[in-house]
Design a protein around this nucleic acid. Sequence first.
RNA 1: GCCCCCGUGGUGGAAUGGUAGACACUGGAGACUUAAAAUCUCUUGGCCGUAUGGCCGUGCCGGUUCGAGUCCGGCCGGGGGCACCA
Length: 718
Amino acid sequence: MSTYTPAQIESKWQAAWADANTFKATRTEDKPKYYVLEMFPYPSGRIHMGHVRNYTMGDVIARYKMSTGHNVLHPMGWDAFGMPAENAAMASGGHPKDWTYQNIADMKAQMKPLGLSIDWSREFATCDPEYYGQQQALFIDFLEKGLIYRKKAVVNWDPIDMTVLANEQVIDGKGWRSGADVERRELVQWFFKISDYSEELLSAIDTLDDWPAKVKLMQANWIGKSRGLQFSFSMVDGPDGHDRVEVYTTRPDTLMGASFVGISPDHPLARELERDNPEIAAFCAECRKGGTTAAELETAEKKGYDTGLTVRHPFDTSWELPVYIANFILMDYGTGAIFGCPAHDQRDFDFATKYDLPIIATYLPEADSDPQLTEAYVPLKSESVHYVKGFAGEPVQTGDDGVNAAIAFCEENGVGHGVTKFRLRDWGLSRQRFWGAPIPVVHCDDCGVVPEAKENLPVELPYDVTFDVPGNPLDRHPTWRNCACPACGKPAQRETDTMDTFVDSSWYFARFTSPDAATPTDAAEAAYWMNVDQYIGGIEHAILHLLYSRFFARAMNMTGHLPDSAREPFNALFTQGMVTHAIYQTPSNTAARPIYHYPEDVEVRDGVTVLKATGQEVEVIPSAKMSKSKNNVVDPDNILAQYGADTARWFVLSDSPPERDVEWTASGAEAAFKHISRVHRVATDIAAMTDATGQGDEELIRATQRATLTFQVSGTLR
RNA sequence: GCCCCCGUGGUGGAAUGGUAGACACUGGAGACUUAAAAUCUCUUGGCCGUAUGGCCGUGCCGGUUCGAGUCCGGCCGGGGGCACCA
């Protein structure tokens, strides 16, 4: 009987693979290709079990495809721009660049012992000037093709730190460092015209046969195609230049239930009114307090201000409706104005109740229903309803048919027209931060906004910056922004905004096909390796990252950087579950928050989980996301040292189906180790067993079945 | 608030609308051992029963069906996303 010594076995084979360049991807036309990719990591400094699980899945597929005659591309890189590096620089000095590259070195050292089949020769970080310089070239090409434009957009503004805050830096409407009330403020920013592709990004979802249905549904809902009526109310006595209020509604069938018109505090009419009316100005200012997130806006207490203005109902000009400024109406969806129908929309109902506005039902559940509603009546799809109020006395219908009939009726009577709208907004890419790819444009007094010349790329980040005060160091750098205008040659100023980190991750998969090319991609390499055959990552990227990448592939196709066949870049998508771990906690006498204990400090005695040191009973919260602050993180280094990579890999793939969460448990890890040990033992003893009298046959069959499966996942026991 | 997903033994989980709990972990019993570990065998949803066996069971309530873990409606609980976290 031989002993299983993973440290020796794994290091031996890993060295052999490295020497033989086993995992180097080479383009040869005699073999089919296979491109497997895991979502690349942010270099936080330590890998965690989620990474192990993610890369193991890709590794299993890569090894399988290699063994079936494919040229396999299985690369790895680093999503290296972002706020944590700046936060680290602010907290402890140093430079984001040094922090980031050190973290990359540390994480790579942790990943190597996992024995992954990665072609490390293609490695890059998005903060490498060679990478973001090519990204700047893409920006310039997109700009030329009209895929990028500038407009005003709101940001979270911290009035004490005088800086823009990310949503996660706004806590309960206050700046995370200053504690000041955050305000919404408008800045001129750059946008990708992703909305040009709304229809195509939506309809092409049908072609993504190997994507999870739920991701496709989430993307479809995000794009949010709707059919509705756009029309305008005429104002009874509006200010100059405001004789109509344009609204969009998906429920024109309830138009006879209108009881008010609501406009966003950022609507042009509200802007006009607040100029002369301090009370309105104060109300709008109040509405602009707090963060910019949809969740915050929609859960905030509904507030309205009666402007005193009225509009005429389109079907009865003697019927006047009050105009309210309301804090829950978003300027950037629809027209920034709505008609309120309290009887059939709960939000409008709450608003009408609060401001004592009429609640007019256009239909009721039954003919003899009490018309005094206590909540909005929104019928189920299958439910038939009784109409009490329709257009020109005629009843309408519920559902899509009712909406279409209402649109047709309104169009016939000269009230607006049917339109198709999308919820998808253009993608704002400007960030008022240092640690990102500089937006390669120059502001010239004579020429205006001019793209940097490609021969001057990359526009590189300076190293001599400090983070002792909040804000973007590029703004206050003494010389960096000074440059010559690429058009006229006169002195000009660089843009100091950098790009959203989602830009970096929207085309890295294409760059992996030719990481050293002098252009963003190499046509022959991209044509051979694209698309990604299997993409693997977390469900948290189901919408933004994947949608942006789908847009980028189209934009790169339009600008000649990707072939037509790569307009949908990911043939198959797999969304893996998280690796979780129990939290062990005891109540604290002094703080509201409990005391969290490390797994190694607790044990089970007589079925009760207790602290080893004191015997005190511990509350166990199962299956919680691993978090440093909860002391429930399992460090892959320790697991690898104790059991070896194959055990860790086997456990995170076998204990729970790959798409579901897996709870890391010490007993489960122990069991996985026993299993791998058993496979190893039997495999190495097969010769001896077959020499014997044949009594080992049954054992051999079982062992062979286990080994076949295990080899697919771990692969190093050969 | 809106969109999406999930809920089955002590645990991870399995079940094209057709015998619920495959497989595995833990636990229990046993074999081997001076002993322990390791390994191997049996056993392990709950309740009643010495037993043959019976009853109850897939978060809750209702519906469709000859038949529901599975389909439909409504709840409850947990999770993910909501456009400047990555």
